[in-house]
Design a protein around this nucleic acid. Structure first.
Lengths: 213, 213
DNA sequence: GACAGCATGTAATGAGTTACATGATTAA
DNA sequence: TTAATCATGTAACTCATTACATGCTGTC
């Protein structure tokens, strides 16, 4: 069956965007999507999706050989560049977060205190791992070894967010752990920290009331 | 065909967790999932999924009537509580973020400067909206009007993260906007702010090197 | 008594993941 | 020379979304 009329998804455009930088093989696209934390997708999807772009004339596929084994190199077409530019000019969707660890924290009273601490610990581990990766990447750029140095200005914008986010997770988990440490084993008896609630609302209010920069 | 052997997903457990708090109708579950920012799902899914729980004996469905129209009220079973407790004790997956706006920022050089600013503005709008909602909810709790006040201790843990996250998005977009303001129309000519890169790496390094609390 | 919006779903479709298969390359 | 890992996909399946349908309720 034809993919001719299939509508493009955000995933399609993410791949088209990569192709606008340079041509890539399927494997390279998969690796690149992995690094780009803003739109994570399974690599099988990354191998599949570019075919749609080719069907619509937005990309070209060229078959190459590694020994006996064929591989595909994808590159963007002028029509693809125009489609990409149109997409980039439209406002995109806001962040969507899926966070299983925090979901478990939300229902913690129906499990054990140990389970709650386990999940906070897992969040800290995730954060530390990410931040360590980020240090390595940042260090590489500082030493002039980072990939696509000509794109650094834009990369720095997004990396700043991803980095802040990774630290936020860890700092939150640290704080939550210290709060939970004082709770009884029967979590349904835990007392809320009203000062934390007040502080939270104050911070939020200060933010919405701050003069627009 | 039977759903008898279907494996439970995180979505299933999210619903089971809600049922552990009290019985809900399908519509109430859908609304509640909407509010719980940690695991967003389309409401049609929320109507569908509990059937799996009933098939496995983890929940009970009772048919009620609103006039001529039937509706279903779901409640958890003892077996369901045990399954939930087991799930809660396992470490969950780390956060997964889908952020289309930032994806567009990442590819900004292939669009216009105006498009880039449009997306930063959209991110700010998203943030402001969320924070305003959070203020209203927090205010309600401060006044003793919040739902499930007996769960406040745990709610406060997760709300703190979601609130910090919403503010992070806005503060990042504010900063990015001020950086981009100084860029030329041809975004491929934009100069990276090396001081921002240094600051970023320093922050990350300070975080990983800080003594574990 | 009609219209808007709340409430309660089902159906069709498609996006995405997990599992699998296998060739090429490198390190031991 | 074998094992591990990198590279390149395909197939089967399921999760999830969008679109639709329609009853109920309050209000003008």
């Amino acid at each position: 069956m034809s993919r001719r009329l299939a509508k493009l998804t955000t995933t399609s455009y993410a791949l088209l965007g990569l192709m606008a930088i340079r041509p890539w093989t399927g494997y390279e696209l998969a690796k690149q999507m992995d690094r780009n934390r803003a739109w994570p997708r399974a690599s099988s999807k990354v191998y599949e999706e570019p075919k749609k772009l080719v069907d619509q004339g937005l990309a070209r596929a060229s078959r190459e050989m590694t020994g006996e084994r064929p591989r595909t190199v994808y590159s963007i077409t002028p029509k693809g560049r125009r489609a990409l530019a149109r997409w980039l000019d439209q406002p995109g969707a806001g962040p969507v977060l899926e966070f299983e660890q925090i979901l478990k924290v939300f229902f913690a009273e129906h499990g054990s205190k140990q389970g709650l601490l386990t999940n906070l610990h897992a969040a800290k581990a995730w954060s530390r791992q990410r931040v360590e990766e980020n240090v390595a990447i940042g260090q590489a750029y500082l030493e002039g070894r980072g990939p696509f140095p000509e794109r650094l200005a834009v990369i720095l914008l997004t990396a700043t967010f991803m980095s802040d986010f990774a630290r936020l997770v860890g700092q939150w988990a640290d704080w939550a752990e210290s709060v939970v440490a004082g709770w009884p084993s029967d979590l349904s008896k835990a007392e809320p920290e009203m000062t934390a609630l007040t502080a939270l609302v104050d911070k939020d209010r200060a933010y919405v009331e701050a003069p627009r920069p």
